[in-house]
Amino acid sequence: MTAVRVDAPAGADTTAPAAAFRFRPGRRSRSRPLDLLGLLPFAVYVGVFLGAPAYAVLTAAFQDDQGHVTLSNVTSALQDPYRQAFTTSIELSVISAVLGAVLGLGLAIAVSGARRDGLVHRAVTTASGVLAYFGGLPLAFVFLATLGPQGLVTKWLDSAGYNLTQHGFVLWNMVGLVLVYLYFQIPLMLLVIFPALDGLRPQWEEAARSLGASRFQYWLRVGGPLLLPPFLGAVLLLFANAFAAYATAYALSTGTVPLVPIQIGSVMSGNVLAGQQNIGNGLGLWMIVIVSVVVVAYTLLQRRTARWLR
């Protein structure tokens, strides 16, 4: 029997009895140690091109310029000016995540009242599928064309007697960045929350109503608690999304806005004090820690939702 390795990766010859053997139920799902070899290319690839860079960051974070072990990168990454960067980054991510989630949920509810196969529903679903990927460089330039100094809306407002610049509006401060980030946060929220909203079965509301619950009571006791995990999960996903974003903020501010990713980029371009060459790795370490915690929490909440979402 051991000779019958019909599905070895090398493509050994198949014989009829071997195939018959493979059809025996129960045999199919048991994996043999050699089967693991099939995952080798994948494992090596990820190890080299994701594992090695991550390992390099995590080890360099604990080394000084001469390669001696030190904690100074990890600790000074949490002191000014980097402390300020973390505060700004977290503030921007929280505000854009919460606003994006609330506005996205509102829009999703407004749309889910429309007919499922209707024009509005279809347009919003398709648009959010496309816009959720819309970040990076193009987004920055689109907003520069809109609300930048020469932007179209800036000019409209100017001719209407309202000068944006005089009122202190710029695209690269907190208000401006939130406004820009919402452009991808709201569509991402729609993508995440639509399946959950669609999963709330009308029968559940009918059942609650027939037992005497008011519409408000249904949302308080049934709909709300069901939607809470996916909603919180979405907030976390949106947070991670904004926290890791680099290109949009970079292009809007030509690298001057104090966000953690921008600071890392600036360190990489050599903009760093002597004796702190590994500070970028220290910052990277903290970014990985923060995003990992958030992503793990998101995955757990998502799994909870998957229990009733079919």
């Binding site: 860079p53 360190v267 990985i288």
Partner: peptide, 17 residues
């Protein structure tokens, strides 16, 4: 995993690795 490791950090790690 790439979701948990921001692109900036990957870029930084490439230089070192």
């Amino acid at each position: 995993l790439p979701m948990a490791i921001p692109a900036v950090v990957i870029a930084n790690g490439i230089l070192g690795a």
